[in-house]
Amino acid sequence: MTEIHKTDAVIIGAGPIGLFAVFELGLNDIKAHLIDILDRPGGQCAELYPEKPIYDIPAIPVCTGAELTTRLMEQIKPFHPVFHLNQMAEKLEKIAEGWRITSDRGTVIEAKIVILAAGGGSFVPKKPPIKGIEAYENQSVFYAVRKMDTFRGKHLAIAGGGDSAMDWVINLQPLAASLTLIHRRDEFRAAPDSVSKMRALVAEGKMQLKIAQIMGLKGEGGKLQSLVVKDDKGESEHVCDTLLAFYGLTMRLGPVAQFGVAMEGELIPVNTANFETSVPGVFAVGDINVYPGKMKLILSGFHEAALMAKKAFEYIHPGRKYRFQYTTSSSDLQEKLGVKPDERAA
């Protein structure tokens, strides 16, 4: 049977706000697990702009998305958060003690409260806007490699010009019956070493490189027969039976819409006193929430997490009196953080 993780709070989304929520909850003696669809923490900071500068984090004149994530990870270390990465929170059910969250990989977490910090939703592969492509998905069109064997003996086309496309060209070439890389231009935004390897395979005649774009699919019953491709000379057909498309990731709200909290479009209205949703014990912080005056800023999300954690304390420690404290002066908080300021001063 699947192991059931039990904790105080489960945070859906390990972006900057989900990470900082761990900190604020931790100061309030609340343990947390996080679920994220990406393979690493950081959310948009990790996926969209790891190298881009951010200038509006208080007291940090400039840092990149990746640096912000690293700093937050360092800051929350004392609270030992448990990460469940590479998976999407799929189902939220009410149970007597609180909530049961199940991921699409079968991870089950039971927690007393839930914090939705899912930003713009789950990062999922971008799908080419081709009519009827759904019929081919998971049969002859794929956006990820789960098992390499799926591609053994296939006449494979890989689309894309980044690291994912290069890595899978290199790894799947020996397995595939034939392999063609299809990219819109003869330049690749990938590790130079991988690009060299790909070019060597082309030079050795072990694969083809086609500078073109995919415009359509032809086939029957989900079985791909050819791709309609377009290049400088116009449209033509490229015969293959399997397509692996790597156009990067896009955000889709996903299962959160079915979690039972009131929605306003794709956003979740909250009470700004405590960032609770329409459902008691379920909170929403960061880009996913909406309230009068909302600004989608990381710094706003940090504030929201602090107020959320104060309310969360009532759920996790009923009967305990909430004590407002400063990390600067509270030996209690400093103990939780594992710091000894006296020693630091000395």
Partner: peptide, 10 residues
């Protein structure tokens, strides 16, 4: 130009 690699029907 590089980001357009992630767009369709360019």
């Amino acid at each position: 130009i590089g980001m357009l690699d992630g767009a369709f029907e360019v």
